[in-house]
């Protein structure tokens, strides 16, 4: 790896000063499970690393029925998977965080890093889209918010400017009879990258769906919010017919490529299968609440 400098700021304000001074040469290091590999391969060549893990503002993990979830960008995935409150309120997000890598990787990797890495196949991103998560981004100019579905602009690239830090995600508290689910397809049991991943969250009033959001991964250059598919469910009973219609609409916005993990045709098929499955599971969970 090329020569670098490393800083471990103890506050967000300090981190922003360091990042501003580093300009184009700076990059925030979270778990490092993607970035350090990319630096060794010469894919990314930042010269000044600023460690997100030592910034208290990026380690926030709190839930309240009023505020919902505040998830710091540098919270390692093991804290999400092991948090009983998150398991209760956001099982889909927990499923996504739990699917990433080995125990070793989950002890380091972060949801913020997963998003900032900009991979279209990031597991936690469709789960965040389904939950309507909003990114809080800080810079010397102040704080701005970005919807998760608008954060990645192309493979490996995000809306973050060189002097900006993704601080935390905020996710609304789930209303009554609301639940989420995330599933991915891989050709083995564990330790792989999604061929396709789909997240969904639904709210029920009796059998009628009153809100729904579907996020798609690995089927376009960026993770997608399936807006029309989600809207098609609202106001209808969440039955097989409505779910099938939503799955078809989700397929319509998928623009998958053929690569070593699967053909475009197969991925398109999987979008339908997984959308139906996650909607059914999310609906079952919502009914049970």
């Amino acid at each position: 790896m090329h020569a670098i400098t490393y800083e471990a700021p103890k506050s967000l304000e300090h981190a922003l000063r360091l990042l501003a001074a580093a300009g184009e040469k700076g990059r925030v290091l979270a778990g490092g499970t993607d970035l350090l590999i990319q630096m060794r391969a010469g894919v990314r060549t930042p010269e000044r690393l600023i460690d997100a893990k030592t910034i208290p503002e990026l380690q926030v993990l709190s839930f309240s029925p009023h505020e919902g979830l505040r998830l710091g960008a540098a919270v390692p995935c093991y804290r999400i998977v092991e948090d009983p409150v998150l398991c209760q309120h956001y099982p889909g997000l927990v499923e996504a965080a739990g699917l990433i890598g080995s125990v070793q990787i989950k002890n380091r990797c972060t949801v913020g890093g997963n998003l900032c890495n900009g991979s279209p196949a990031a597991d936690t991103t469709p789960a965040l889209i389904a939950l309507g998560a909003v990114c809080y981004v800080a810079s010397p100019r102040g704080t701005r918010t970005v919807a998760v579905e608008d954060f990645v602009v192309s493979p490996g690239r995000t809306v973050l400017q060189p002097d900006e830090v993704l601080v935390e995600f905020r996710i609304p508290a789930p209303p009554p009879h609301t639940a989420d689910c995330y599933q991915r397809f891989i050709p083995r049991n564990e330790m792989d990258i999604a061929v396709v991943g789909v997240g969904a969250a639904v709210t029920l009033d009796g059998e009628v769906c009153t809100a729904a959001r579907i996020g798609l991964g690995a089927v376009a250059p960026t993770p997608l919010f399936a807006r029309e598919a989600s809207a098609s469910l609202v106001g209808k009973p969440l039955d097989d017919e409505a779910i099938a219609t939503a799955a078809e609409l989700a397929q319509k916005i998928a623009r998958p490529i053929t690569d070593m993990r699967g053909t475009a045709e197969y991925r398109l098929h999987l979008v339908g299968v997984l959308t139906r499955r996650v909607l059914k599971v999310a609906a079952e969970r919502a009914r049970a609440r």
Binding site: Y6, A8, L29, G31, G32, T33, L36, I37, R40, L49, D51, K53, Y78, G101, S102, V103, Q104, I105, N107, R108, M191
Partner: peptide, 28 residues
């Protein structure tokens, strides 16, 4: 050296990690 094989596993503050994906300076 990519966090896939686990041969470099060590425990940091009670959590097992791949030491190839941790910088030495992070051990402070």
């Amino acid at each position: 050296l990519t966090g896939d094989c686990g041969a470099c596993s060590v425990i940091i503050d009670g959590r097992v990690v791949c030491s190839c994906l941790v910088l030495g300076v992070e051990a402070q």
